[in-house]
Every structure is written in C-alpha cells, then in structure tokens.
C-alpha cells in the first residue's frame, strides 16, 4: 500500500503542477485543478503522517522520494504565490527526476528498529530531509537569476524568494537538529558528539547561514550574488548525501 502510494501521489501532483502554466488562462479549469492538486497534496501529507516512519527515509531511495515530495509541495505553493517568477517548471522537473530514481531502485523496507518508534528520531529525519527539499527550491530561484530571468526586477524578486526558502530551510533544518540532539542526549547522554556526522551537521547549518550573511559589496550583479548564495546550499545537499 505504502510503496505505490509513495510514487503515485507525488507523480500525480507533479503532473498537475506541470500542466498549470498551460491551463492557467482558463480561470475555472485552473481553479478546479488547483483544488485537486491541494487535495492530493493533503492526502499525501496525511499518508506521510500516519503511515510513514523515519525508517523508510533513512534509505537513499526513501530520502530521494521524500525530498522530491517537499520540492513538489514547496514549489507548488510558490507557484500559487509566485507572481510570475518564471520558475514554475523546476519543481515538477526536479521531483520527477528524484521520483524516477526512486522508481528505478524501489523503496526497501528496513527492519523495524526501536529507535524509529521515537518522535524525536522521526522528526530528525523528516525535518532534515525536508530542509534539503527547501534548500533545493532556493537553489532553483538562485539559479534562475543567473540563467533564466532577463529583467533586473525579476532577478531581484527571484533573489528574495531564494532567500525566503533558504531561511525556511534553515529553520526546518535547525528544528531537525534540535530533535536529533534530544535523541542523542537520551541515547548517549550528550546532545553533541565529536563525530563526523555531528561536525558535518554543524557545518551544514553554518553553510545555510552564508547566503543570509553575504556582504553588500558594491558593483556586484544579482547573478554574482545568486551564485554566491547557491554554492553553500548545493554543498549542504551533497554533505547530506555523504
């Protein structure tokens, strides 16, 4: 039940989002399809809450599917309020690629280890991977500043949305780390450990702060700012996969 649903629901939502730019001219059809899209997203959200446990997304395949889902949802809401940023095609594209990978590998069903029954452990894995989806949405905005948008006003708007999703991603990431710290504390008596995972996690949070602390250098173009903001976020996603 769970495995086909993991693939089918986001795939349907992807299709709807992909179709929106073409059907947007017809107000009523657009509204119906948007409503259907929200319904599917809500259903999928309920499914995630009730049926999915962290043990599914600790696998690489599960991780990819979950990140794709976050991209779809975040990108979908952004499309609704996107104010014509020209960035609508990223979410379906990225999510389709990630889901395609999930389909190719299939989702394994790991052992029901006891730790995955804990709320803090579930929160840690969901929020961390959720933040990766949000960072990727931010990357899509920053990348379109450099390579898609032509007008300066649009570029500035794209930068602003990139910054919004970076902030949102940082908050979600930090919330996940707090949950993970509580897990570590109850498990091993310490909210912080001197290990590869914890040091990388700390570095990832600091990296998410970099796009928000770019010095205002005179004469820098929006494209240059976007690239500087994008690189740390890409490194975060790579570190998360390591």
């Amino acid at each position: 039940m769970l495995q086909p649903a993991l693939i089918l629901y986001p795939a349907l939502v992807c299709l709807l989002f992909a179709a929106w730019p073409r059907i947007g001219k017809n107000y009523i059809t657009g509204m119906i399809l948007r409503g259907a899209g929200f319904l599917l997203v809500s259903l999928y959200f309920l499914l995630i809450i009730h049926r999915m446990e962290a043990r599914f997304i600790v696998t690489d395949q599960g991780k990819m599917v979950f990140i794709a889902w976050v991209i779809v949802v975040a990108g979908g809401f952004q499309y609704l309020y996107g104010k014509g940023t020209g960035n609508e095609t990223f979410s379906p594209l990225a999510a389709s690629l990630a889901l395609g990978s999930g389909l190719f590998y299939g989702i394994s069903d790991p052992e029901p280890y006891m730790v995955y029954e804990r709320a803090d452990v579930n929160l840690f894995f969901f929020l961390r991977n959720g933040s990766m989806g949000l960072f990727l949405v931010a990357v899509s905005f920053f990348s379109s500043v450099s390579w898609v948008a032509s007008e300066n006003a649009t570029k500035v708007l794209q930068l602003h949305y990139g910054r919004n999703f970076t902030l949102l991603g940082a908050a979600v990431f930090l919330a996940g780390e707090v949950a993970g710290s509580w897990w570590a504390f109850e498990g091993w008596g310490d909210p912080w450990r001197w290990s590869r995972g914890f040091l990388f996690a700390g570095a990832m949070f600091l990296l998410s702060m970099l796009p928000l602390h770019l010095p205002a250098a005179s004469g820098r173009t929006p494209g240059g700012t976007a690239i500087r903001a994008m690189i740390p976020l890409i490194i975060i996603v790579i570190l998360n996969l390591m």
Partner: peptide, 12 residues
C-alpha cells in the same frame, strides 16, 4: 565551516 569539515573528515 572548512575547519568543521576538516574535523569531520578526520573523525571519520
């Protein structure tokens, strides 16, 4: 960040 990643690589 570089220092922490270096530490992470050493720790792993």
């Amino acid at each position: 960040v570089i220092w922490m990643c270096l530490g992470g690589l050493m720790a792993g």
